[in-house]
Design a protein around this nucleic acid. Structure first.
Lengths: 188, 188
DNA sequence: GTAATAATCGTATGTCCGTATGGTTATCTG
DNA sequence: CAGATAACCATACGGACATACGATTATTAC
């Protein structure tokens, strides 16, 4: 419902109706509406984070470059198809509300930090195996990569001609400024 | 009020009270609440865009590198001090609502496009004067730079130790992947 | 100076929504 | 089977809010 018509239109009674249950039952599971929404946000966040982690974990089997694996993983954040677009809309709607809700902000911060850590680990691995220049600060590079991904997500969602391809190209270019492509991730 | 306590808490009557006028008078100037909010969003957007354009326009007088000018201009989007933090909160709150409001989305798109165009122009100028590699696609580079700025803004707002300095460093690093720093902007 | 327009106010109306409440039925446990 | 817990429902309450409305005062224009 959030993805379809936005957070504003989500009410307890509408949610109950959509779930085919009564308002009372929703209250049985969630003390307040805010609890319910917080739960929804957590669900979506861990869902996305889980998919990203899955891609990174499956990387060694495919023997691809770090940049390629990262490109696929980060693409999970881009609204390139309908389910991801729905997720994007949910996450962004909550991001707007998180500005004034510590509980939501914490979920947001946690997932952002997890993503950052994952990227930074990849960069550090690149440094170790010699495909990333040793003077590159892994933390700064990770921040840049995470930031550009977030910004690109906005752009892809906004649409416009070729926004999706353009974003992939931009992300690839960004990764190319850090990774030379000489070695593979978690592949020793 | 949006910056202080969020869009959710903004009501017509509270707005009227804050402005020291009656509800009726607010209605006299804005047919609906949505009209009022749209107007606010436009105001803030043009305010920020104006400051950015001002910085770029004043650049020749200071004879600095393109990257340095861009760094200052893009820093306008980062919530580095209180007024900018307020603006950030306003823009992001509206961004959340723009997901389901074509009118708000259009304002957002217009300002984003303006920023992108300004950056792309700077990159093209860099190519012309030979400090940007000729194989760099100005559009892709501009997209990257704009995207990283947006993402960094989120990070700075989230705070954490040294987020501000870290963001400036990341932005500088990003710009350094495009500009070598050999020539100055609009300085011929 | 008068007519029209703009500025201004206070209140009423109708709706929507979150939550509280009190109850009933099902399921599990010992 | 008995008792407790969980699942489940319908409705009522109270508050908040956007907008409509009617009226009054100030300002402008001819």
């Amino acid at each position: 419902m959030i993805a379809e018509t936005g957070l504003e239109t989500v009410t307890v009674s509408r949610t109950a109706a959509r779930a085919g249950m009564s308002v009372g039952l929703v209250q049985h599971y969630f003390r307040t509406k805010d609890d319910m929404l917080l739960h929804a946000f957590q669900e979506v966040s861990t869902e996305v984070a889980g998919r990203v982690a899955e891609i990174v974990r499956a990387a060694p089997a495919h023997r691809r470059t770090i940049a390629d694996v990262l490109l696929d993983a980060l693409s999970e954040y881009l609204p390139l198809d309908e389910p991801r677009r729905a997720e994007f809309r949910i996450v962004r709607a909550f991001a707007g509300r998180a500005l004034d809700s510590p509980a939501l902000a914490e979920v947001e911060a946690r997932t952002a930090e997890a993503a950052h850590a994952e990227i930074a680990r990849a960069v550090r691995h690149g440094v170790e195996c010699g495909e990333v220049a040793p003077d590159v600060d892994a933390d700064t590079a990770a921040t840049r990569i995470a930031a550009v991904t977030e910004g690109l997500a906005t752009r892809v969602h906004r649409g416009g001609t070729g926004a999706a391809d353009h974003a992939r190209a931009a992300l690839r270019a960004e990764l190319a400024t850090v990774f030379t492509g000489r070695c593979r991730q978690y592949d020793r």
